[in-house]
């Protein structure tokens, strides 16, 4: 039971890392970024590549974060900026970008799946009585908690966090107060992309293999999380990601036939009962 819970929490944290970036980009900035999963996949590939080159998992994480930041900058500057405020154009152009990012992975890293494993110090498990805690899963949970705490603190307690929240409510007024909102949104986009890339590199040793289309599979989960948690609600995203992670783990064990449908069912129930999401504000 406890093992299932830890599995569920670790999966939930990975989904949270991907969804957290999307919460910022989709929920706060109102940009429908279907290429978000592509950044996740690029984070995984670049991280695994750096790990292979350096043998350092810390460097792999740094490499993935840098990849996310650079790709986030290029995407926002050249793809997203011209389509702010236009959802249809955003869907079309980011879906196109998603395909380009996936295909580019095949060009750069080859079309086959790549095997990934955790570093030695994160391999293996701890035995506590009857409970086996896999080290790498505990590590993912720890990173997820740290990222959540950091972003939550920044959004609530710093001027940049205030600016992001205010910018979502009234862009004009933020600018009239002397703040360059374009720069702020670019920064948010880069941070969101870096979080997706971090999720990707952490997923790689967890699932054991990475593949070019992995981004699309996880992006759907991330959108479900944002919808269930409430648009732009960071705490909501964490809660929803945990819910999806845990329900997936328990369903796979107890009712395997329903394990694939459970996410969609959860989203459908939330949309019927509380369309603005569990933590979303009315309006």
């Amino acid at each position: 039971m406890l093992n299932l819970m830890i599995n569920g929490l670790a999966t939930g944290m990975l989904i949270f890392l991907l969804a957290a970036g999307l919460t910022l980009i989709f929920g706060l900035m109102d940009v429908l970024n279907f290429a978000h999963g592509g950044l996740f996949a690029w984070g995984a590939y670049s991280g695994v590549w750096v790990y292979g080159m350096t043998g350092s998992f810390v460097m792999a994480i740094v490499g993935a974060l840098l990849t996310g930041i650079i790709l986030g900058y290029v995407t926002e500057r050249f793809i997203i900026q011209p389509v702010y405020g236009n959802h249809v154009q955003q869907i079309l152009i980011t879906l196109g970008l998603m395909l380009v990012l996936s295909e580019m992975l095949k060009v750069v890293f080859g079309p086959n799946q790549i095997v990934a494993s955790p570093p030695d110090y994160l391999s293996g498990s701890w035995q506590l009585g009857d409970v086996v805690i896999i080290k790498y899963r505990a590590f993912i949970i720890l990173i997820g908690v740290l990222v959540f705490a950091l972003v939550h603190y920044v959004l609530k307690n710093t001027k940049i966090g205030l600016t992001v929240r205010a910018g979502v409510m009234n862009k004009e007024m933020v600018q009239a107060l002397g703040i360059n909102i374009k720069k702020v949104f670019m920064l948010v986009f880069m941070i969101g992309s870096a979080m997706a890339a971090l999720g990707g590199v952490l997923l790689a040793p967890y699932s054991g293999v990475i593949y070019a289309e992995m981004g699309m599979d996880f992006a759907i989960l991330a959108f479900i999380v944002v919808v269930i948690g409430g648009m732009g609600n960071f705490v909501g995203s964490l809660f929803a990601a945990m819910l999806i992670g845990l329900s997936g783990a328990f369903m796979t064990y107890y009712v395997p036939d329903l394990s694939l449908a459970v996410n969609m069912l959860l989203m459908a129930v939330v949309l019927v009962v509380k369309p603005q999401g569990l933590f979303g504000a009315k309006g």
């Binding site: 205030l162 929240r165 205010a166 409510m169 009234n170 004009e172 007024m173 009239a176 504000a281």
Partner: peptide, 11 residues
Amino acid sequence: VPEDQGIFGEL
């Protein structure tokens, strides 16, 4: 000071 006051309602 805009006509609609421009208050950030959630802040």
